[in-house]
Design a protein around this nucleic acid. Sequence first.
DNA 1: GAGTGGTCTAGACCACTAG
DNA 2: TAGTGGTCTAGACCACTCC
Lengths: 246, 246
Amino acid sequence: MMPDDLHPGAAVAARPLYQQVHDHLLGRIVAGEWPPGDYLPSEQRLAASLGVALGTVRRALDELVQEGVVERRQGRGTAVLRHSSDRARFRFFRLVGPDGSRIVPKGRVLTARQRIARAEEARGLALAGGAEVLALTRERRVGSRVLVHETIALPLPLFSRLQVPVGQDLAEELYVLYQRDCGVTVARAEDRVSPEAASIPVARSLGVAPGTPILRILRIAFGLDGTAVEHRVSRTARLEYAVAIE
Amino acid sequence: MMPDDLHPGAAVAARPLYQQVHDHLLGRIVAGEWPPGDYLPSEQRLAASLGVALGTVRRALDELVQEGVVERRQGRGTAVLRHSSDRARFRFFRLVGPDGSRIVPKGRVLTARQRIARAEEARGLALAGGAEVLALTRERRVGSRVLVHETIALPLPLFSRLQVPVGQDLAEELYVLYQRDCGVTVARAEDRVSPEAASIPVARSLGVAPGTPILRILRIAFGLDGTAVEHRVSRTARLEYAVAIE
DNA sequence: GAGTGGTCTAGACCACTAG
DNA sequence: TAGTGGTCTAGACCACTCC
């Protein structure tokens, strides 16, 4: 139930009511009260149970929609977003072909093992030195051609229940598995793109000559509560990184 | 004044009222009725003059704020955004140092001349073949070190009044000059980042060995009305391209 | 037909800015 | 003090979904 200081009358609310409602609902979603795919109570019910006006709940939900946490469906209700593979790809996959076409390479995990986080990974994930991670290497192909090579580090306690089939094409995007197996929802990410000369193993994997200029994309992904949940380095020689600045 | 079909009673509005109000206001802004820096009439006045409720005007203005067209100032009013150099940098300048620090290199235009658009430029700007552009080459430095080399193409009819001092550091970002001299407001941009081996002239400019892997960033920038207004290729060896995916 | 979100209205009070 | 945007409320009608 809503704490009393959520009501407009009580004291001077430091934060606007609709933001408090937003935080309150997000907290309950993160806590798992409504798992991905579930419907929240209707706006009317939420407003009544929280003791606020309909418009205030709507504004809070507007923000959750904006943040990609929930989705409205007219006539049905408001549902917590499940990361479908399509949606994850559309939102987080930024690589396109040289002609601008959206490329959708199949992902295949090559190796998965536990190890101590490297210094860069520990820094990116805000882990203590010596912390363990689940390390994946992955390739994304179109046909037999490897277009992207990835090294992914996931903090172990969070991802101990992850089930990744090794050596076969994945039907789902990884973010879908994170959510399904581990309850981890990727809400936000920060990418850094830099140029690099292909090392010998990377060149072999991507099918280019060693020393070829390639893109190195470092991604740190964050969960709903703002903690870093994934450290990913992607390398590609033939694709481009595309961004729209709105 | 507002056309009659803006009123909710008239016919069945295909588009929601607040979107019609949004388009109507954007149209008047693009037409120059309120130049950058000017204040719009108050929300009350707009609502009264357009014959809609306050909340409807507010929602339309919300969208214009979201799109970066106007800015609200409590107690003062709603102003059309002027591209300040700081704001333009923050929004459109995506390069950071290897340590993630935000780098703010001084820009200096090296050459400015009219020429026929190259094929790639004509395509990016949606110009007819043989159309003329104003072509700028620019360097961005920190101290004496060149960090970014840029080639910029601007459609000539639109930019004939552009005043760019050549050979000296620019106090303002180019987007500020576009707006001030030519009435062109950059509202949106699309970037494409690809890897490249530094050519001999680029390598000389950036102070690296020829063949060094560098980033090539192609930007197409769009005006308020959605037309392409700038074709820009930036090259950098030492900076990284940073993006937050929200 | 019942219930949901989407839109629109009307009016209140507050916080901030400026003269 | 007057005017502005920021927040919050209350209630209406519509479009859509599902039974």
